[in-house]
């Protein structure tokens, strides 16, 4: 299985049209400029590349209480560790 952090950063980078430069753990999710299409695509790519099923319901805020890319990496690490 691919490493979580670089894989997620790479996926996000491809969709972060609002961001100048590459995303890091400290990047705010709100600054990524991710549209509605990209959210479902990012989840799909995460599931494909990291062989994990993300328990995401499109009726909910996909990011919950998470604020930074680091929060996303931690949540994903926890999910995969389960």
């Amino acid at each position: 299985m691919a490493e979580i952090e670089p894989t997620l950063l790479e996926i996000i980078k491809d969709h972060a049209v609002g961001l100048v430069g590459a995303p890091t753990r400290e990047t705010q999710i709100a600054d990524l400029g991710i549209d509605s299409f990209s959210i479902v695509e990012i989840i799909y790519e995460v599931e494909e590349k990291l062989s994990v099923e993300v328990p995401f319901n499109a009726n909910e805020n996909p990011f919950g209480e998470m604020k930074t890319v680091g929060d996303l990496i931690d949540a994903l690490t926890e999910l995969i560790g389960k």
Binding site: F37, E41, Y44, E47, E48
Partner: peptide, 9 residues
């Protein structure tokens, strides 16, 4: 493979 999530749209 799984269907792409944007297929319906």
């Amino acid at each position: 493979k799984r269907p792409h999530p944007l297929t319906i749209l």
